[in-house]
Design a protein around this nucleic acid. Sequence first.
DNA 1: GACGAATGCGAGTGGTGACTCGCGTTTGCC
DNA 2: GGCAAACGCGAGTCACCACTCGCATTCGTC
Lengths: 242, 242
Amino acid sequence: MDNAPEEPAATPDRPAGEDPAPGEQPTKPRRRQARGERRIEQLLEAAGVVFSHTGYTAASTNAIAREAGVSPGTLYQFFPNKEAIAVELGDRLLHRWRDSQGQALRDEHATLPLPEMLDAVLDPLISFNFENPAFGVLMHGPDTPGRITREIESVHTAVLHRIEELMSGYLPDAPEAEVARTANMTLALFKAGLDLIQTHEGAEREAYIQELKTAMFRYLDPLIGDRAAPAGSSRDHLESTP
Amino acid sequence: MDNAPEEPAATPDRPAGEDPAPGEQPTKPRRRQARGERRIEQLLEAAGVVFSHTGYTAASTNAIAREAGVSPGTLYQFFPNKEAIAVELGDRLLHRWRDSQGQALRDEHATLPLPEMLDAVLDPLISFNFENPAFGVLMHGPDTPGRITREIESVHTAVLHRIEELMSGYLPDAPEAEVARTANMTLALFKAGLDLIQTHEGAEREAYIQELKTAMFRYLDPLIGDRAAPAGSSRDHLESTP
DNA sequence: GACGAATGCGAGTGGTGACTCGCGTTTGCC
DNA sequence: GGCAAACGCGAGTCACCACTCGCATTCGTC
């Protein structure tokens, strides 16, 4: 009935263990050696490379193992199945993303003038996506295990809420729906610019970073210039109050 | 060395036949009945649905056949293999896209004032993407047969050139590289807005269409100095030429 | 209505890729 | 150094999926 990739049943094994926390289910904590932890890092990095190159379904576990320089059997020493690799990788990326995002969207930045604010917010987020190319692919691939999709969704709405929060500082009396829409558009604009930035190199890339900031500035500046009339900003292009 | 999906060898059979053109290779023109042509349409539409839902690799030919309400054997009556389905679908989408794009980016539109120009250009392109949801997925999926990717690329650059052409009418003395960058950013902005539009419904969707136009207006308006500026169009937002 | 070709079917078949198994090697610990 | 457990391997298993085959049905044409 449904051939979209979904999670099979339950977590069979914890791949990269946190501390077992004494009061927990006896889920076989599976002690690891330092070597094992290193292998896990290797494998996740390899998985990031392969996934970002081919997407989730088209990536083979053998390819991941090969990329990591280990045998397929070794891979399954640390991950119960292919999905678990993606889940663990997704978890880490999402965690790192939360950090970057928290750093970028600080309260202090909301008090900066717009151009400086854009630098302060965008630069770290651009760097992040640059250092974690698998992030975008896992984020937007049409095939990706449902568990990840759901986590991504929650992180996505969290970012939006944060942006709305910051924006409502600039726009104290704009209707909520409009703030939400503007936040969404801002995020979408960022993603669009990011794509451009990632597909260019060297000086071109720098130019596109600048171009993204310019576009964002032009989009956001009219909103915060004066107390823009609520009707004026989205009803039509030009009718605003004199 | 390379496990990205590539085309295997050569075109084994022509799936949806044009006229055989007497002077051609004896490639078994395979006469079709009207019923067959209809099946092909059905199958391609089904393929569009399935691909747009799961991506290329994760889509199974059985799922496509089921979606079309036929048996797997019937599917292979009309297409030699899975890739051929994607290629044919891609061809048709790209062809339709060329039409829509040609209609949207007409010379006459370049003389309109910006807000009207945005309506004239964006509305048809939005409708197109709306009626062909597989287009975007096939366009951006990390797995998609290389043949399609290459065609997409050529269409993509064609669109960019056309946008640049139109833009250089507005910006007669801007450096070429800058025009190219602006065209790229404009297209990216469009794609970003499109995504937003497609993931919302009803009134929300309309609002996002408007929001996209607003964003585009704010991005492009400051660029066009004095040309085609009606009744205070650019006065409200940023600096304008006196 | 009869004949050949096109269409339609769905149970196979072969190959690929996720995952396992048995056994050898390394590590941590006493 | 000796023991147990973690690590490492890669040939092998199994399920799934792209694709085929033999046969039934429908269509176009005379």
